[in-house]
Design a protein around this nucleic acid. Structure first.
Lengths: 246, 246
DNA sequence: ATATAAAAAATTATCGACAAAAATCGCACC
DNA sequence: GGTGCGATTTTTGTCGATAATTTTTTATAT
């Protein structure tokens, strides 16, 4: 029996704009947060009933999620949460390294006053969140938010809108895996040291050093999962073979 | 008065799969081929009537096109063809260089017998198309197809599915601009020489040389537009300010 | 003439119903 | 016990209508 995730009267308010957009965001959140599991079927009728909207609305929200590659559609057999796997994580990591580094290098080479100010702010907030997390005073959600803002700030100054857009896509994708690795005791202090080093190199306009550090940072994040037998198996063996979302 | 593009009973057959998919593909073709111009409004009702399908079908096809970034949606004011500009071309070119080179390097480093065979085939077909094009014997469409297949073949052997996926996205995006530059007399012979050089470096497993050549190849393709005053102006000044698709 | 506001028209977003296809079940048969 | 086949149920894809919103037009005052 598999209930507890999704289903009964989960009324989403957020009256921001169209219904489609509201549903889209809520579904995205649930997928990234792992409320809907990889490969889980996302049935129109079920979601429609839960959100109290029309089938078309759900359908369009799901179609939008396929852009983010969080949902996969197959003709005549509906939508499901995009699978996760060790292979995908390796692949994603490689792609992220290419994009994150390209974007950071560009950011540094075009460094401006405004950018550095923004970066300092993001770094300070991240530092606070990471210090609190060490002393068990803050939630993982808060840290994740600060982490995202910090990495966005690193990228923000790059010229190419396209590179930034693609980087964002991959970063979002990696959030699902980060969520996974948060379940094991990972060395917070090391992660913070990495962030500090990257920050300092960026502020010093040392593009070579900064990208090298970022490269390792992204790589090590994947290592947390790679080195943990339980997680590795959870990813490849049993991605909770629950087909229905009922 | 602006007719001649889109409108009267354009019945699309292609009975492959769902109606949404058929419409999606046809719209994509028309946007890339420039039948629908940048910034042109894509009205649901108009398209619905033209294709003889329901509004929902058109709507979903348009939503899918936003994944490809060929169509841009704005809340409560519908869909329009994504704009083109000189700035976007510069940006896109920079991003393409990063991805095309990363992918080619990976392809070469993992070189296999099968891949080389495929590459040779693609190169030979491209050579034939380019030779014919020089003597005015083949259509631009045929060349474009061969060019795409050749560049796909270069990328095909890379490990990272993500990098390949993103490369594909950008390549498709660049097709719109390539279409534009086909209107001016560009030096076909030079382009062919570039293709040959890249091909030879790839077959020789010289990743450094191959990526350097590919870098220049992508850059020069942008130059064709950059160096042509008429095209440059057409892009930024008057993207044919025809709002309605009526 | 020009600006402003109300009314009309056009367009998009949402709905619920129905048709088409896939998955599931029940039963004969090996 | 398993295996193929047809009927039933579930789920997806498509439709056309209506509500909500934006754009255009018309009317009115400055």
């Amino acid at each position: 029996m598999d209930a507890e995730n999704a289903g009964r009267a989960d009324q989403v308010e957020t009256n921001s704009g169209t219904a489609i957009d509201t549903i889209y965001r809520e579904l995205r959140r649930r997928i990234i947060d792992g409320i809907y599991l990889p490969e889980q079927k996302l049935k129109i009728e079920h979601l429609r009933a839960g959100f109290q909207v029309s089938s078309s609305t759900v359908r369009e929200a799901l179609t939008r999620l396929t852009s983010d590659h969080l949902v996969t559609a197959e003709e005549h057999r509906g939508f499901r949460v995009t699978p996760m796997s060790m292979a995908d994580l390796e692949d994603l990591t490689q792609a992220r390294i290419v994009l994150e580094c390209a974007v950071l290098r560009d950011s540094i080479n075009n460094a401006t006053e405004d950018w550095e100010l923004r970066l300092v702010g993001a770094y300070q907030r991240l530092t606070r969140a990471e210090t609190k997390l060490l002393h068990d005073g803050a939630s993982f959600d808060t840290w994740e938010e600060c982490n995202r803002v910090f990495h966005d700030a690193l990228a923000a100054n790059a010229h190419s809108v396209w590179l930034k857009r693609l980087r964002q896509l991959l970063f979002q994708q990696s959030e699902r895996y980060r969520r996974l690795s948060s379940t094991v005791a990972t060395s917070r202090a090391e992660v913070h040291a990495e962030h500090m080093a990257i920050f300092e190199a960026a502020i010093a306009h040392d593009a070579e050093r900064a990208t090298a550090l970022l490269h390792d940072h992204v790589w090590r994040a994947a290592n947390v999962i790679r080195d943990n037998t339980a997680l590795r198996k959870a990813l490849d063996k049993g991605p909770e073979r629950r087909g229905s979302s009922k």
